[in-house]
Nucleic acid binder design. Structure first.
Lengths: 212, 212
DNA sequence: CCAAAAGTGTTAAAGCTACACCCATGG
DNA sequence: CCATGGGTGTAGCTTTAACACTTTTGG
């Protein structure tokens, strides 16, 4: 006779912070796994859909409505004591639009994906999988819109791609492919911001998932 | 105050039956959704992992140990009355190795994917997603090993691909790509089976998931 | 010898990768 | 006029798609 299972939604929230791909983690100030960092999440009680639970978690932590939210997978057996499943999601947000909760209990913070500490539960694995998915989808979808503001320069977009993929992309080829793929369009605007030629600003034609 | 949620694993079991991609469905002989066909599944009680629960369902229905089993996604809200989540998996099996349960309660049967009836719950959507995943993975992995016996001819493999993708593939290009990718190798054997030249038999180098 | 499936190469088009120089601006 | 990032084209290579004839066997 086992107790009824608990169901939780957890969210890997990605953003580009200081040019580096980062995830939002909360610091656990109570057992279990006290003192470790972990993914934010919420227990699910059936009063809403799982996706809504994930979206609510995202909004609570970032203040921002998620631009991109996708289910990853479901894991069981995190807690050996009681039956529990966690449904993992990942989200992409514009770091500039985020207002983190300021709290002493479970304070959240951005952590660079390239140098994560050991996390509570199996959360390191979840983040690795999320990263693999984002990298793959970057190649054949427009999901990068989730990480950028309404208007941006091609340089910003280029750097976003490089941060996520973790490798340099040829600048000319990147522009060519991206413009040819017709996911972004130039607005008339230019951004002047230094002692150099101003950059044209672009926007995504669709701010919703599109496959190429 | 909501009751505790129930968790179930459901499995989309694919096989090639009479040259057509098919799924195994059970006929519901009791409410809810009595009289409709549905995906087989099992309630999860926490005594095993979700994947084990899916594998057990697969074995119970087919007698065969699943060669390929992968998690798809998790859906909530199937039952408006009580909170429930279903974790969907898909499996690939060799139809020849299957021994269906013969039962009067919830009898199972193969149904061609190309012409499915309306199914219980949201199961039509689950199957569509599973199909999309299998099609995508066929292109860049060796998962077809799950659908074929130990030894097979290139024609059989070719037809398997065509059944799943639902479109013809050039025979010469197919052979070239497949042999170049080094996922299969010729055994010395030939199969004589008619008034024509015998076909060489092949086998998969690895009968476990490999990315190309 | 006939019917049936097995086996095998080439060519054209498209896409990808690598690579270097001029332009517009602010100071 | 100088430093800084913005913007652009081409050539070689690899990959993909289209396509038809010869071989081996059983009856």
């Amino acid at each position: 006779m086992t107790p009824p299972p608990t169901v939780a939604a957890i969210v890997v929230i990605f953003a580009i912070v200081d040019g580096e791909l980062s995830v939002l983690l909360i610091h656990r100030t109570a057992p279990p796994e006290e003192g470790l960092w972990a993914l934010p999440g919420a227990r699910w009680d059936g009063s809403e859909s799982l996706e809504e639970a994930a979206a609510r978690t995202l909004e609570k932590e970032t203040g921002a409505r998620g631009l991109y939210l996708e289910q990853l997978f479901t894991v069981s057996g995190l807690d050996p004591a009681a039956p529990a499943v966690a449904v993992a999601y990942f989200a992409l947000v514009d770091a500039e639009a985020v207002r983190l909760r300021e709290e002493r209990e479970w304070p959240p913070a951005w952590h660079r994906v390239a140098s994560l500490p050991r996390l509570a539960f199996e959360n390191n694995v979840v983040i690795e999988q999320a990263l693999a998915r984002v990298r793959a989808k970057l190649e054949y979808t427009n999901i990068a819109y989730g990480l950028l503001p309404e208007r941006f320069t091609l340089r910003e977009l280029h750097e976003t791609y490089e941060s996520i993929l973790g490798r340099p992309l040829d600048r000319r080829n990147f522009r060519k492919r991206l413009l040819a793929s017709e996911v972004v369009e130039a607005t008339g605007e230019r951004r002047r911001e230094g002692a150099h030629r101003p950059a044209l600003m672009y926007r995504f034609l669709k701010r919703e998932p599109v496959f190429l």
